[in-house]
Design a protein around this nucleic acid. Sequence first.
DNA 1: TTTTACAATGAGTAAAAATTCATTCAAAAA
DNA 2: TTTTTGAATGAATTTTTACTCATTGTAAAA
Lengths: 198, 198
Amino acid sequence: MPRTKEQYEEMRRATREKIQAAAMHVFARKGFGAANVQDIAETAGISIGLMYRHYKTKEVLFRELVEFAAAGMGRAAERFESGDSPRLVISNFAGEVWRDMTSGDELANLLILMSRYAAEPAGETELIVGQNERMMNAAAGLIQRGQQLGEFRAGDPDAMTLLFFAALQGLAEMKLNMGSRFVMPSAELLTAFLFKEG
Amino acid sequence: MPRTKEQYEEMRRATREKIQAAAMHVFARKGFGAANVQDIAETAGISIGLMYRHYKTKEVLFRELVEFAAAGMGRAAERFESGDSPRLVISNFAGEVWRDMTSGDELANLLILMSRYAAEPAGETELIVGQNERMMNAAAGLIQRGQQLGEFRAGDPDAMTLLFFAALQGLAEMKLNMGSRFVMPSAELLTAFLFKEG
DNA sequence: TTTTACAATGAGTAAAAATTCATTCAAAAA
DNA sequence: TTTTTGAATGAATTTTTACTCATTGTAAAA
């Protein structure tokens, strides 16, 4: 008589997705504290009540997105931990970043979300900090190996790693702030400070 | 019979300074919307009421800090507009940035404040956007001149400028988020992608 | 010791935002 | 056409936060 279980499931899945996309957009632009649930519901095109049927609190919603972002960092770390040519791994990574940053806002949103997490809903930064540390360590190891192979410039691998990810972070922020005035630098430019010669 | 005018003035100046420093700290970490006046007053070590005697609203306080930051960008733009050797101007600038970022939080706070302004209290982004555009244009002109002189790498000057400031922006964010785990990259590393050879 | 001028306080009020819940809606099939 | 089930709504409630103001504190000098 009513809809089938599958139909209801599909309905729920669809609205969850709308909520997630809207929340990602709003949180990335305003941060956790300044974003209000009305904004999110409106952006998602649903009522506030429905949002609360899917997410007990604003914070639970935020956390889910952060966890998603952290998982992305984990995948990045794995790539850096692979035994392939450091130069190739970094170039490929930079190339993908370039494509993602050029084609839409998703990566930029994710990057900003992560950095905003540190400050906001108190405590429980471990997840993001842990994954971040893992990713940075993997990248630093890769750079060090590249230096031993003579392909990479000399310099403190930790500082070089930090600069690389800081640049990505800053580009994400600028992309959202500048809108159409933003020009994504090429993957080669992004990695130029790492490699020897040009 | 009561204190002299000068004494009262000095008292007011001192608390204003406390408020500004506290607000800079809190706004940079939380953004305008998420920062609450209680936090600011507490950080400044004064009462809420006193804060409101000095600043009519939270937004007025925020604006004053943003204007201060914008003035800093204006000074940076002037330096980029000077006719000196591009390589020298950029190197000096990077060196100063390195010193500021290494010695305290002030520059990091200012950088973050500016990027947070874009989203937050609606409208009136002109000041920050205008100064930002001026600074970026000046830097792009400098890079272009450096390319003509053969000192700088080839590449789109706008994209190179964007990357440079994005890196600063990202480093500021990381400095606040990572605390003692942060390592500031050297000025040479920061500008390595701009100059030919190493 | 008292007066004076203004800084400083913080409980109280108003406004904004998060969260709840009684009610409505919509599609499937009997 | 009616029944059924769970999604969807948004006005009402609770909580949080910005902002006010009546009162207190204090150093100088009369």
